[in-house]
Write a protein that binds this DNA or RNA. Structure first.
Length: 598
RNA sequence: GCGCCAGUAGCUCAGCUGGACAGAGCAUCGGAUUUCUAAUCCGAGGGUCGCAGGUUCGAAUCCUGCUUGGCGCACCA
């Protein structure tokens, strides 16, 4: 049992103690003129042109859909409704009377929209110094300060290998942990192992009857898996084995020493294997509490429900009738045994008690939606107001050839095999493209595993994922390596341009379109991280990284940093450095590494 | 039967919770490398946003119905 309430052994740490206000410049006096300030000042200017207070201006300063339209825009539909004049007319009248702030290069009405182009020099010198100051820890915010969130993720069953589909809960959950830490939340990432149930009785029978003596001492997880398969084969010929399995599980529940010893070994073997894979993925939990951990808390959980007066006995089972067309929630079966739901109730009570969370998330596949609706409903009926702050974070299933892979059918793809294949493929590419690279094994791991992780996180969670090797291993275009490669190129430039001569960069020299496009994206990183955390969507970060990488690759292709005017060169190097920080921080939020060479 | 989720280019997906002619990547075709890593860049073709109504000045986005696919519906987890 590992229980580290607020550990943060994590390569995207949230600062001291993993909580409280972040170390960035959010709280320092000189935070520069970030995108927010530009928007606020635009708002004030528009309001003044209309002779009203900024707070009375309806709508937001937005980003136009296409760059040619401008950098910021204000749409006049809301005003039009309010003052009953055509929006086109309003837009052009504001444009005429507007006295725009100095950082605005041009303001013009385009139909019902008021579009602004920012002066590239002001944009760059207003936003880049802040990013430079924050370095690799940019993207942090403080809206979660003082709040605690518990995130239940990964949560595999022991005695089986981590299959490829486990990457979904594992990496989505891990990313949500990082995102919340970045925004100032105190985070407890919990791995709720499936380590209890009759299947362990089956394994015990298999070990006792079908395995050689001393099997468990040196057994690997694969060995356990073989036992599981062997049991099912044997029980077809000898159905009484099922009863024996139930007996063994009962022995385990009753604390029988031999049963307990076997189960403990199953758990050890499984965790050793899991930890190896988690290690490769950079995944760390703050607590690993299996279902077994809640065994002695089930009775009190059930008692709490009964005391709340919400239970009834139906067909011999103890249930909580629920509204909303939901089937009743079952707390205790006819035979007295408890269920998954019972354990989740006990776990929720425990988590509330030990973490006092403001928000609790369960990262599981969408198929469990009903279970969680029932869970939250029961907790609500038990009188816990915090039940309304629990949330199921569903994701689409991983399909293989249109089918769900299952252990029993033997067509499951193991997570580690996918990682190995991706690393192997990356190593081949490195040998082909960059034969002189040092640490090629390490880089191949960062890039290959990163590609697999990115592939999992780049789309919205709810989308089903069709597993195709060609897709997972395609490293061109919208993929992890595309982003990592941008980061590598940035470091290539920084290496060759040297540390500079110590003079501060004059960012107002960045006036090229490719420079401005890139700056505009970097300036939006902060709000992008906030949005990803708010919407519980790592894909928001992934999409942002693709866009930013594309802008950087374009910049890299069209403009040169080294050589030419020394001041421009220095300013560009600064831009490259900021891009590197943003890319690295963003990749970190997805649980990916950012190598400096590849 | 009831419920939840999804349907956008040949394929995989964005589309900022109602706004500007629907955008990327892959695949196809055609270009770019004496220069900071071509895992890159540029261009071309490719769309009745599943269908039909409705709300609205305005709908891929909201509502209703239908349709297709996935998942779930008390003694599994």
């Amino acid at each position: 049992m590992t229980l580290r309430p607020f550990g943060n052994a994590d390569f995207y740490e949230a600062g001291p103690a993993g909580c409280g206000p972040p170390a960035g410049s959010r709280h320092s006096e000189d935070r520069g003129r970030h995108m927010e300030i530009f928007r606020q000042e635009m708002r004030i200017a528009i309001a003044r042109a209309l002779g009203r207070a900024p707070a009375d201006l309806p709508g937001e300063i937005e980003f136009p859909p296409r760059r040619e339209m401008g950098d910021l825009s204000y749409s006049c539909f809301a005003l039009s409704k309010e003052i009953k004049r055509p929006p086109q007319e309003i837009a052009s009248s504001i444009a005429k009377s507007l006295s725009a702030p100095a950082f605005v290069e041009s303001a013009s009405a385009q139909g019902p929209y008021l579009n602004f182009t920012l002066r590239a020099a002001d944009l760059a010198s207003g936003t880049l110094p802040e990013i430079e100051r924050q370095g690799d820890s940019c993207g942090r915010g403080s809206e979660g300060a003082g709040k605690t969130v518990v995130i239940d993720y990964s949560s595999p069953n022991i005695s089986k290998h981590l299959a490829f589909h486990h990457i979904r809960s594992t990496m989505i959950g891990q990313s949500l942990c990082r995102l919340h830490r970045a925004r100032g939340y105190r985070v407890a990432g919990v791995n709720h192992l499936g380590d209890w149930g009759t299947t362990f009785g089956k394994l015990m029978v298999a070990v006792k009857r079908l395995a050689p003596p001393g099997f468990l001492e040196g057994a690997s997880l694969s060995g356990l898996n073989d036992m599981y398969v062997a049991f099912h084969k044997a029980s077809e010929a000898e159905p009484s084995l099922e009863d024996e399995a139930r007996r063994w599980f009962k022995l385990l529940e009753d604390g029988d020493a031999e049963a307990r010893a076997m189960w403990t070994r199953f758990r050890e073997i499984s965790l050793a294997d899991f930890n190896r894979v988690y290690g490769r993925l950079g995944v760390v939990f703050d607590a690993i509490t299996g279902e077994s951990f809640f065994n002695d808390r089930l009775d009190s959980a059930i008692k709490a429900a009964v005391d709340a007066g919400i239970t009834e006995v139906s067909r011999g089972a103890l249930v909580v009738p629920l509204g909303g067309g939901m089937p009743p929630a079952m707390l205790r079966k006819q035979d007295g045994a408890t269920l998954y739901l019972t354990r989740d109730i006990a776990a929720a009570l425990y988590r509330r008690l030990s973490y006092g969370f403001d928000r609790a998330l369960y990262v599981t596949d969408a198929g469990q939606a009903l279970h969680f609706r029932q869970l939250f409903e029961v907790l609500g009926k038990m009188g816990f107001e915090w039940a309304s702050r629990m949330e199921h974070v569903p994701f689409g299933v991983l399909l293989m050839g249109g089918q769900k892979g299952k252990t029993r059918e033997g067509n499951v793809v193991l997570l580690e095999n996918v990682l190995d294949e991706a690393v192997r493929r990356t190593l081949d590419l490195i040998i082909e493209k960059n034969p002189g690279l040092e640490d090629r094994e390490e880089v191949a791991n960062a890039v290959g595993i990163g590609a697999v992780v990115f592939n999992d996180l780049k789309n919205k969670r709810v989308k089903d994922v069709n597993f195709r090797w060609e897709e997972v291993l395609n490293f061109e275009g919208d993929a992890g390596p595309y982003v990592q490669y941008a980061h590598v190129r940035a470091h290539g430039i920084l290496r060759k341009s040297g540390g500079g001569d110590g003079k501060a960069s004059d960012y107002s020299l960045l006036r090229e379109k490719d420079e401005k496009d890139l700056v505009l994206l970097l300036a939006r990183f902060d709000e992008t991280v906030a949005k990803a955390a708010r919407e519980l969507e790592p894909s928001v970060i992934a999409q942002f990284l693709l866009e930013t990488s594309a802008a950087f690759h374009r910049f890299h292709h069209n403009l040169r940093v080294i050589g030419g005017d020394a001041d421009v060169s220095r300013a560009r190097a600064g831009l490259v450095s900021c891009t590197g920080h943003v890319l690295k921080a963003g990749l970190g939020l997805l649980g990916m590494r950012a190598p400096e060479k590849m």
